[in-house]
Lab assay of single mutants.
Amino acid sequence: GSVVKEKKEKALIEVRPYVEYYNELKALVSKISSSVNDLEEAIVVLREEEKKASEPFKTDIRILLDFLES
């Protein structure tokens, strides 16, 4: 629970300088966080969101995924 939350919060802070739609990304992460149990599940849902998103938000999600998977 809290470790996953920390990882996601740290990821958002780390990617902030590189993303165009930070507030939207943060809102998406919050929405996903409330419906998943762990980081792996969150990553799966983020990948689905990435497929549906259009640029440049798609790239923002990709940047976040790269950080979460590192």
Rank of each mutant, 00 (worst) to 15 (best):
P56C: 03
L12P: 02
R16N: 05
E48C: 14
E6V: 07
V15C: 14
L46N: 00
L46M: 06
V36N: 05
E24Q: 11
L64S: 00
I13E: 14
V19N: 01
E24V: 08
E48S: 13
S30H: 13
L46D: 00
P17F: 06
S54Q: 10
I13G: 04
N37R: 09
P17G: 10
V29G: 01
R16W: 14
A11K: 02
V3P: 10
L12V: 02
K52R: 10
S2E: 09
A53H: 11
E24A: 11
D66P: 01
V3Y: 02
K51G: 10
K26N: 06
E40G: 09
L46I: 05
E69C: 10
E14T: 07
D38F: 07
K7F: 15
L39V: 06
K5T: 11
P17R: 09
E40W: 10
G1S: 12
S70C: 10
R62F: 05
T59P: 02
F57T: 01
E40Y: 10
E41A: 08
S30L: 15
E41K: 05
I32Y: 05
V44E: 09
V15M: 02
I13P: 01
E20S: 15
K52W: 08
E24G: 03
K8A: 15
Y22M: 03
E69W: 13
E20M: 15
E41S: 09
D38V: 06
V29H: 02
K5G: 09
T59Q: 11
V4I: 11
N37W: 14
I13T: 08
N37K: 08
L28T: 01
L39C: 15
R16S: 05
R16D: 09
D60V: 13
K58I: 02
L12M: 04
K31F: 12
E50P: 00
K10F: 11
L12K: 01
K51L: 09
A53N: 06
V3T: 13
A27H: 05
Y18M: 12
E9S: 05
L39W: 13
L25C: 02
D60K: 03
I61H: 00
K31T: 08
P56W: 09
S30R: 08
S30T: 12
Y22P: 02
V44D: 08
E50F: 13
E55K: 08
F67Q: 04
V4H: 09
S34E: 14
F57P: 00
V29E: 00
G1L: 02
I43C: 07
V15S: 03
L64D: 00
R47G: 06
N23S: 07
I13D: 13
E50D: 02
S70M: 11
K58C: 03
Y21K: 11
K10H: 10
K31G: 05
L28S: 00
A27C: 04
V3K: 11
F67I: 05
K51F: 11
S30W: 15
E6F: 08
K31E: 09
L28Y: 03
L28M: 05
I61K: 00
S35M: 12
A53E: 07
A27D: 08
E41M: 08
L65W: 02
N23G: 05
L12H: 01
F57W: 10
R47P: 00
V44M: 13
E9A: 05
E9N: 06
V3G: 12
L25M: 01
F57E: 01
A27P: 00
S30E: 14
V19Q: 02
K31N: 06
V29P: 00
N23K: 08
L65Y: 03
N23Y: 13
V15I: 12
G1I: 11
I13Q: 13
T59M: 12
E6M: 03
E20A: 15
I63P: 00
F57I: 01
D38P: 04
F57M: 02
L68Q: 00
L39S: 04
S34V: 08
V36P: 03
S30D: 15
A11N: 03
A53K: 03
S33I: 11
S34M: 12
E49D: 02
P56H: 03
E20P: 01
Y21R: 08
K7W: 15
V19H: 02
S54R: 10
Y22Q: 01
N23D: 13
K7C: 15
L68D: 00
E48Y: 13
L64G: 00
K26I: 12
R47N: 05
A27V: 06
F67V: 12
A42W: 13
E69S: 12
K52H: 07
S70G: 11
R16E: 14
A11L: 10
E55P: 05
L28V: 02
K31W: 13
E24R: 14
L64K: 00
A42C: 14
K52Y: 09
L39F: 10
E40M: 09
E24W: 10
K7E: 11
I61Q: 00
S70R: 10
F67P: 00
S54M: 09
I63T: 08
E55M: 13
K58F: 01
R47A: 06
Y22A: 02
S54T: 09
E50W: 15
S34C: 05
N23C: 12
L64W: 02
S54W: 12
Y21M: 14
V19T: 02
V45S: 11
G1N: 11
P17Q: 08
L64N: 00
R62H: 12
I63Q: 03
S30K: 06
V29W: 15
E49L: 03
E24I: 10
I43H: 02
S70L: 10
E40L: 07
L68I: 07
E49V: 05
L39D: 12
L39E: 11
Y18Q: 13
I13L: 10
E24L: 14
K58P: 00
I13H: 08
V45F: 15
F67S: 04
E9D: 10
E20H: 15
E41G: 07
K8D: 06
L65M: 06
L68G: 00
S35E: 12
E6W: 07
K58V: 03
P56S: 04
L68F: 08
E50T: 05
I61L: 04
S2A: 09
F67M: 05
R16G: 12
Y21A: 08
E55Y: 13
R47Q: 07
D38R: 08
F57R: 01
K26Y: 15
P56T: 05
R47H: 10
K51R: 11
V45H: 10
S35G: 08
V15R: 01
F57V: 01
L25F: 02
A11S: 03
Y18K: 13
G1P: 11
L28G: 00
K10R: 11
E55N: 08
K31C: 04
I63E: 01
A53V: 05
V45L: 14
Y22T: 03
E41C: 05
R47W: 13
K7V: 15
Y22N: 03
G1V: 11
S34P: 05
D38M: 06
E50V: 08
S33K: 03
K7R: 11
F67E: 04
E50R: 12
N23E: 14
L39Y: 08
E9H: 07
N37V: 07
R47S: 06
E41L: 05
E24D: 06
V15N: 02
Y22D: 01
K26M: 13
K58H: 01
S33T: 12
S35P: 03
I63N: 01
R47E: 06
L65D: 00
S35W: 15
L68P: 00
E20Y: 15
V19D: 05
P56L: 04
K31V: 08
R62I: 03
I43R: 03
P56R: 06
D66S: 14
P56Q: 04
K31Y: 12
L64Q: 00
F67N: 07
A27I: 08
Y21L: 12
D60Q: 03
L39P: 06
K52I: 07
E6H: 04
V36E: 05
D60W: 15
I61F: 02
K26T: 09
S33M: 14
E20G: 06
Y18G: 09
L65P: 00
A11V: 06
N23R: 07
S54V: 09
E6R: 07
S2D: 11
Y21W: 06
S30Q: 11
E14W: 05
T59K: 14
G1R: 03
K26S: 11
V44Q: 10
I43P: 00
E24P: 00
V15K: 03
I43T: 04
K5E: 13
R16K: 12
P17V: 06
S33E: 09
E49W: 06
L46A: 01
K31M: 07
I32K: 03
E49C: 06
E69R: 14
G1K: 07
V3M: 09
I63F: 07
K31H: 07
L64M: 05
R16Y: 14
R16C: 14
K5W: 13
I61W: 01
N37A: 10
L25R: 01
A53M: 04
E69M: 10
P56K: 04
S33G: 05
V3R: 06
E49G: 02
K58E: 00
K26R: 09
A27E: 09
L28K: 01
V4M: 13
E24S: 05
A53Q: 07
A42H: 04
E48L: 14
E6P: 04
S2M: 08
S34R: 08
L12Y: 02
S30G: 09
Y18E: 09
V44G: 10
L28N: 00
E14L: 09
V44Y: 15
A42S: 06
S2H: 08
L28A: 01
K58A: 09
A11G: 03
S30P: 01
I63A: 02
E48W: 14
V45Q: 12
K8L: 15
E69T: 11
R62Y: 04
F67R: 06
I32V: 09
A11E: 03
S54N: 06
E14N: 08
I43E: 02
Y18V: 10
D66R: 15
F67D: 01
I43G: 02
S33Y: 15
K10W: 14
L12F: 03
L65K: 03
E50K: 10
Y21E: 04
Y18T: 09
V29F: 15
D60Y: 15
V3H: 10
R16Q: 12
A42L: 15
K7D: 09
